[in-house]
């Protein structure tokens, strides 16, 4: 079972490496949207500093959602998904391999580029580690929840817009706790409670969403 998990994980990393544009595009989107804000608001250091966590988090949320588009689409279209349901390893386990690989391909680069963007928005240096921590705890949850939506819409032609209707409301708790954690720590308070909540949501998502994703994929195959 673990072997099949590793095979899918390695396969997806290899495919992503051979189709690099799909890694890079959401990242460019992330950078571009974030740079729109100073252009729209003006070079107002105090204001930008204040809303930087919100900007980074909302944009990260959208970038994650966009990047998920191809999570199951190619497997669905080329028939690999059908073959995966015939394997000994349960589909709910295999999808976690895909999502883990996907997070390494899209979530991790997003994290790595965030310090740079934080500087553009005048985020104080001591805040950056907290920003990264919230992203580290939050983006896997976004991937897991988003994967449910993707699994439900993978067979649809106008899946993109519907996907956002399905999953954006479900993203709200993560957004709220992440930004609260950042605001608290900016004011010198402890952010432990919010981070603990984010961790709890992540654990919940890891436990439950694979089953929802597998069930949704099977519905989409129908």
């Amino acid at each position: 079972m673990l072997d099949a998990w590793l095979q899918i994980f390695k396969r997806d990393l290899l495919i992503a490496f051979r189709r690099r544009s799909e890694i890079i595009h959401p990242l460019i989107f992330f950078v571009m949207v974030i740079s729109l804000f100073p252009l729209a608001i003006g070079d107002d250091k105090v204001l930008l500093q204040k809303i930087a966590p919100a900007i980074i988090w909302v944009t990260a949320l959208l970038a994650t959602m966009l990047s998920l588009d191809n999570l199951f689409r190619s497997d669905f279209e080329d028939g690999s998904l059908e073959q995966m349901t015939l394997l000994k390893t349960p589909l709910s386990l295999l999808v976690t391999a895909k999502i883990t690989a996907h997070w390494f391909i899209t979530g991790l680069p997003l994290l790595l580029i965030t310090p740079l963007l934080a500087v553009l928005l005048y985020v104080p240096t001591e805040m950056i580690s907290m920003l990264l921590l919230t992203l580290l705890l939050g983006t896997p949850t976004l991937s897991l929840i988003g994967a449910v939506g993707i699994a439900l819409t993978v067979g649809l032609r106008q899946g993109g817009v519907i996907l956002s209707l399905l999953i954006l409301p479900l993203y709200i708790p993560v957004l709220i706790f992440a930004t609260l954690a950042l605001q608290n720590s900016a004011q010198g308070f402890s952010a432990e409670a919010q981070l603990a909540m984010m961790l709890a949501i992540l654990v919940l998502a890891i436990t439950l969403s694979p089953f929802a994703i597998a069930a949704a994929l099977k519905v989409s195959l129908n």
Binding site: I145, V148, L152, P169, L170, P173
Partner: peptide, 22 residues
């Protein structure tokens, strides 16, 4: 498909509610 979404939603509603209260 909708049933799966509704079930995911119902798990999330308390979390959403709690986060909004906070």
């Amino acid at each position: 498909a909708v049933a799966i979404l509704a079930l995911v939603g119902v798990v999330n509603i308390p979390i959403i509610h709690y986060s909004v209260e906070w």
